[in-house]
Simulated assay, not measured.
Amino acid sequence: MPGISHLVFGLMLVIPFMLFAREKFNYKVATIFVLSNWVGPDSYWAWRFIGGDNFDLHALLPFLIWAIPLSLFYSYLSRFSFTKTERFFMIVDDGRREVSLKNAYILCVAGAAFHNFIDTLFHGGFPIDLFPEGSPYNIDLAWIGKWGEYMIPQGADILIIVGFISMIVTSLLIVHFLSRSLKDLLIFLGVIVGFIIFTQIVLGWSTFTERELSATTYTLFFIFLPLLTFAYVMNDVNKNPTKPSTQFISSESVLKLIAVVSLILAGGFLFLGLSPLFAPSIVNSLLGGYLGPSELLIIGLVVSVIAGIGVIGAVGLFFKNKICRNIIIFVSVLLWFFVFPFAIALVLSRSDIKNLFEKESSE
């Protein structure tokens, strides 16, 4: 279950952008970025039964694979808006995906980097999970923090002069380069990073008060690059608006497909809800093995009731029943933890699909 602090951190990151660039601020880009910060890699835990413990896509590098289906979902999500009504919220079809698959993937990875940033700082041991948990190739923040710790040569305190000279020169150059183009500023930043790498790794100097190489490396990959890619996507979406979505499959066929998928999904959850009665160990293993028999029965009862309603709603989709459409949308919203089932609610909110139900009710 993703911690609420990931959501708070994601909002903290986008609000400053919203403050100074409100007219260019695309809330759909920001939504994908914040959701990737929050749910991000943790969304895999709902599906870990597919690969088991030996196929962990939560870690940062394996997440690059998991980000592919997530980007498909988030790109499709950008086709819709959410409007508050008197009773609740309504999903509105805007007719085009504002965020392309490529940009959605970039946002997923950027959000995952920030998700990992919080995990590193506030999970015990400061782990940086580049690989699945338990991998001998994983590192931690303490190990990175030691880079440059023993680099000062004996009797070389005079090298502190290099630090003062660098500070003066760099301060003057900052004033100049901040008034230049973004390209020039990035080159300037690259030169500074190169200077740190050269002096600390090649020459073995440590002439500054911080462990410069450690701080630069960590902030480069877990703060600067994710923020830069977020800004890049925001800029790209504004400069290169997408075209209206093209329909390749008839609305009738799409509705039948969604009805079948909904029926299978609801039937599967109905089976899981009833399984504590005949196979409690299977369900308990899927839930992490922490629940007792009574807790399993209560959860199973709730899931069975909701899934049973979902089965009725799925059957009603074949007959274009508006009430059943609302039922399936409601049930798919409840499955947000699994992310992808929410796409059912999105498809049923498409203008052409809604028209099928309107025509049926008017006849």
Rank of each mutant, 00 (worst) to 15 (best):
W45P: 11
S100F: 05
Y105E: 05
I32V: 14
A104T: 09
K84H: 02
W45M: 13
S75A: 03
I50D: 08
S100A: 04
S75L: 08
R79C: 04
P41W: 01
Y105K: 08
H58F: 11
F25M: 00
Y105H: 05
F33R: 01
D56E: 11
F55T: 15
I106A: 14
I65Q: 07
R87C: 00
A21E: 15
I50V: 13
G40N: 07
V92G: 09
L77D: 00
R48Y: 14
E86C: 04
F63A: 03
F63E: 03
I65N: 07
F55K: 10
I32L: 08
L70H: 00
S36Q: 13
F88Y: 10
G95C: 04
K28E: 00
R48S: 13
R22N: 07
P69V: 05
F80N: 15
N54L: 11
I68A: 13
N54S: 09
A46D: 04
F63H: 13
T85F: 07
H58G: 09
I106W: 07
Y74Q: 06
M18W: 15
L13T: 15
P16I: 13
F89V: 02
S36L: 10
D93K: 11
H58R: 14
F80Q: 12
G40H: 09
L77E: 04
Y27G: 06
S100R: 02
A59H: 00
F82H: 12
F63W: 05
F80P: 06
D42E: 15
S43M: 03
R79D: 00
I32C: 08
L70C: 12
R79V: 03
Y44F: 12
G51W: 01
S43I: 03
A67Q: 11
L72V: 15
R79Q: 07
T83K: 12
G51N: 10
Y44G: 02
T83R: 09
Y105F: 12
L77R: 08
G95N: 05
L57H: 08
T85S: 14
R97D: 04
N103R: 05
F55W: 15
S36C: 12
W66M: 01
E23W: 10
W66C: 02
S75V: 11
H58D: 06
A21S: 15
Y44C: 07
